[in-house]
Design a binder for these strands. Structure first.
Lengths: 349, 349
DNA sequence: GCGTACTCAGTAAACGTTTACAGACATCTT
DNA sequence: AAGATGTCTGTAAACGTTTACTGAGTACGC
């Protein structure tokens, strides 16, 4: 772990100036003879360029940050898994920030852009506050936001469309002949809760079905709470024949409770979830779920950022990723072809 | 996005030298008057210290890299989720490398330590080759390996104990009265495959049960392949009453096939998996599984690294994390208390 | 009133690169 | 053969910090 060689070391060894060494290492036109001497010296010494000094001079770190609430959340994970290879193949390293759903931490990250330890940032904030907007407007590096920002915010922006997503699922249930479609939502004071609740109502109206408050139950976005909500719903409306669940965890809770109540899925009650996580494919019956395109959003965000890093002052761009319905056994009862889930590496370390 | 202020800007504004600015910013003893002037100037200008210049001078980047095959793999993800907060609270940023199971990429990462863009590295290699060992011996920054390295390798090392893990599960099945315990393994030319296969045999012998090759089937570490292997096993030995699966995906495949064959789990056949991933709790019936302590290993690795960064030349240390059996319905049939899975964040971005 | 000790601030050198500039030498043109 | 052109190299200045060293000014003791 001795102090590594620098271009000065090489210059001495090769009997040339540090400028020549630098030129050779950067492939600038140099006499063959010099190239050989420098290369030889560099090889012998096991020289590796110091990235920090390089960054200081070139004002490029070749690092990009990705900030989200929690890597454990499958949606963020899906983004990460797309972002990483895109950046890597463009020669950027990835700095990961977990903000733990703490707004102050997000603000910190935005602030820290001033430290210039990254060339750009991809951020998926929980909520965009006034403070976010201020910092975004004066950010010291390009930022791409995954999520919604107000019209006119000077950053690239990638968003999902959960409204259409809910509609896809409700339409699907309707097409299967279901007419008494319940909704199990998370708290409506959250952005996804509010949007999905409203979208459910709209979807019903578009289909000419009545909106019945009795068919809606609010729990939370977790399995157990979802299950409890479904139990309540089932007590109130034993006649329901389909459930639109606001995310996959709620849907798993629904499966638990329906099974305990002796209702067959999908024969008696069809169940649709949302987010299309790994769990959807793993559960039994496997879960029909709306993908909001986390992976695509991640990819789009990375590409937007790279594009901006090349071309600093183009207009901010907005990309909306369309949702997609993954149909599985919990609505159609068909046996799904078992396939290797995306996150499944061979063996286990 | 204009060029940010530097200590020179501040120095001019405050009418002091850059040395004084630096001293104030670093809290070195300074006259109150000067402190005030510098602070005021810094505030007005919205100054943020340039991390790159700082690193160059101080030879510390306050970054640490974590390199593994694929974040999508739940085991690595569990490590990451522990590593991140430990580093963060110690003031380090996390640089993430996905090596995609490509050995050359791992080597690259080790090599790139010479660039000095991080202060240390946590790596969970697939296999440790000769080249790994060479590079580890001459690494330009402290490295912690999660996995096994030969005795005497000069790095800190954290390892799991899947041998004991298999024994835990087999003993558990035996205690439940099962005597015809099959094993569904992955390829035995992988390290986990080989170790788990041997451990299964040992566990049986320890219990005084005969080792019967007919009860062992080799597939691969995925759901579909696992299912196929189980189907073959079941045809050969319809009398088996328990299955030890080399990972959770195989176990899920087993559940699929057993269900299709009309065998009840656990009444007819008890099933145990390995790795205790999120999927184990989500499946139905929920899956008894051996946790190899990925989370603990991640935490231990991060702590070892931090410790070494503080104290560069202590003896290399080795930590072994004991396995733990998570008992669920697939062996005991008890209804598990539904709980919020660890990766479940509220809402979905 | 003068030497000593102390506190604080400024100058300048470093960290390891990249790069503008100028100089040395070779090659070509006429 | 002399000037013009071109190719390659070295010198030195940056990038934005931190910090050793020096020196100015103040306080104190005698």
């Amino acid at each position: 772990m001795a102090d590594g060689p620098t271009i000065t070391t090489i210059a001495e060894r090769a009997g040339v100036s540090i400028a020549s060494v630098s030129r050779v290492l950067n492939g600038l036109p140099t006499r063959q003879d010099t190239v050989r001497k420098v290369m030889a010296a560099a090889d012998e010494l096991g020289y590796v360029r110091n990235a920090v000094a390089r960054s200081l001079k070139s004002r490029r770190t070749h690092q990009v940050a990705f900030a989200m609430a929690d890597v454990g959340n499958p949606a963020y994970l899906a983004m990460l898994r797309q972002i990483q290879p895109v950046l890597k193949s463009a020669g950027y390293r990835l700095v990961l920030h977990s903000t733990d759903a703490v707004v102050a931490d997000e603000i910190d990250v935005l602030h820290s852009l001033g430290e210039r330890y990254v060339d750009g940032l991809i951020m998926s904030p929980l909520r965009v506050t006034e403070q976010h907007l201020e910092l975004l407007a004066s950010a010291r590096a390009p930022v791409v936001i995954i999520g919604s920002v107000p019209e006119g915010t000077p950053v690239d922006n990638v968003r999902a469309d959960s409204r259409t997503g809910v509609k896809l699922a409700v339409d699907h249930l309707h097409r299967l002949g279901r007419r008494t479609i319940g909704m199990v939502n998370g708290p409506t004071d959250t952005v996804p809760g509010a949007v999905r609740g409203a979208a459910y109502r709209e979807a019903l109206e578009d289909l000419g079905l009545p909106y019945d408050e009795e068919l809606v139950e609010i729990g939370d976005f977790y399995r157990a709470e979802g299950g409890r909500a479904v139990a309540a719903l089932l007590r109130r409306r034993p006649d329901l024949d389909a459930l639109m669940c606001a995310n996959d965890l709620i849907a798993l809770g629904a499966l638990d409770v329906l099974r305990a109540a002796g209702r067959r899925v999908p024969d008696d009650v069809a169940v649709a979830g949302m987010d299309d996580t790994d769990l959807a494919a793993a559960s039994w019956p496997s879960l029909t779920s709306v993908s909001l395109g986390s992976a695509e959003r991640g990819k789009a965000a990375a590409e937007l950022l790279l594009d901006r890093l090349r071309n600093g002052d183009r207009e901010p761009r907005r990309v909306t990723v369309p949702p997609r319905l993954a149909v599985r056994a919990s609505t159609t009862g068909e046996k799904p072809a078992p396939s290797r889930p995306p996150g499944a590496e061979r063996g286990s370390p």
